[in-house]
Simulated scan of single mutants.
Amino acid sequence: MESRRFEGKIVLVTGGARGIGRGIARRFAAEGGSVAVADRLESVEETAAELAELGGETLGVAVDVTDKAQVEALYARVEERFGRLDVSVQNAGILRISPLERLSEDEWDATLDVNVKGMFLCCQQAAALMRRQGGGGRIVNSASAQARDGFVYTPHYAASKFGVMGMTQSLAKELATDGITVNAFCPGIIGSDMWEYADRAWGDLLGDYARGELMAEWVDGIPMRRAGTPEDVAGLVAFLASDDASYITGQTVNVCGGLVMS
């Protein structure tokens, strides 16, 4: 029998129109949740319509998570539509790859703005709504394997993901007495648009790699010998958002096939 752990639950997923975020949103919808999807992409409403085919109520909202007014409006719209919020998944993020001497302030600022400031703004609104309604809640943040082990040509991205881990721990301590758990997940190499870009950009910088060769080389170094899928990540996120994880908070959990083990 298919699990319906999120029947009657309201879930918000940022960065939910494609890739890992879309996989996460689909998992919650498949398990009975009503899902709001937020993203900068115009396809966000199409994604919401697709999720509705799984049976639950859905909402698609175009939002820039670095804009406080837009984030406030997003959570207000979720509350107005659904009446409450049980799970907030902060998945919106960007990756830019650049050697140190070519890394611009604009690239640095944009990465930290989306990956750290955007997450902070969403966590702030999610916590306020969950505290106001009572009954606890689940906040789940997207980190990265680079929260464990920073990689070459991405100091700005690594810094942002280490920041996510620290923010998660701090908020978990602050919100624990409200019954709100705060955890994070660390994807490794996941088959997605972002990793197609990473294969091209790192491949050009690290050597004369044809498209797909660097990705294949890295995948060969994963103990499980395969890239992950959005569905692999979604399984972990759904667990962290479920009642089974009610005594887990402040944790950052790897989902990477053994690529990093700390």
Rank of each mutant, 00 (worst) to 15 (best):
V87D: 06
R96I: 05
R77Y: 03
S144R: 00
T111H: 08
V114R: 03
G137A: 07
E107M: 15
K117G: 10
S144K: 02
F120Q: 01
F82L: 01
R81M: 09
I139N: 02
Q90L: 09
V140G: 06
C123D: 14
S142E: 03
L85C: 12
V89W: 01
R77M: 06
V61T: 07
V89P: 07
S104L: 09
K68P: 02
V114F: 06
V61H: 02
D64M: 03
V63Q: 01
L85K: 09
A76I: 00
D64R: 08
S88W: 00
A143V: 04
C123S: 15
F82I: 03
V114Y: 07
N115L: 11
G136F: 04
Q125I: 01
C123G: 14
L121S: 06
N141Q: 10
R132H: 13
S98K: 11
E107Q: 14
N91L: 01
V87R: 08
N91Y: 00
D113P: 05
D106F: 10
G134C: 09
G135A: 06
D64N: 10
A143D: 04
S144F: 02
D106L: 08
S144I: 01
W108V: 14
I94V: 15
N115A: 08
I94G: 03
P99Q: 12
Y75S: 00
R102Y: 13
D67E: 14
R81Y: 10
A126M: 11
C122Q: 02
T111W: 06
A92Y: 08
N91H: 02
R102T: 13
Y75D: 00
V140L: 06
L103D: 09
G135R: 07
C122N: 03
V140E: 00
Q125N: 11
A126I: 12
I97S: 11
Q133A: 12
V78L: 09
N141S: 10
D86K: 03
T66P: 00
E80A: 15
I139M: 05
A145I: 13
F120N: 03
D106C: 01
R132K: 15
R84P: 08
A127N: 14
A126H: 09
S88H: 00
A128H: 10
R138G: 05
Q124Y: 08
A76P: 04
S144G: 04
E80V: 05
R77N: 13
L85M: 11
Q70N: 02
R96D: 13
D86S: 11
D113I: 04
R132T: 12
V87S: 09
E105L: 14
A145L: 12
A110V: 01
Q133I: 10
N115M: 10
C122M: 02
E72G: 04
D67A: 11
E72Y: 01
V78N: 04
L129P: 12
K68E: 15
M119K: 07
L74H: 01
D113R: 11
R77P: 07
R131D: 10
L112D: 12
K68M: 07
S104T: 15
G118Y: 08
A76V: 01
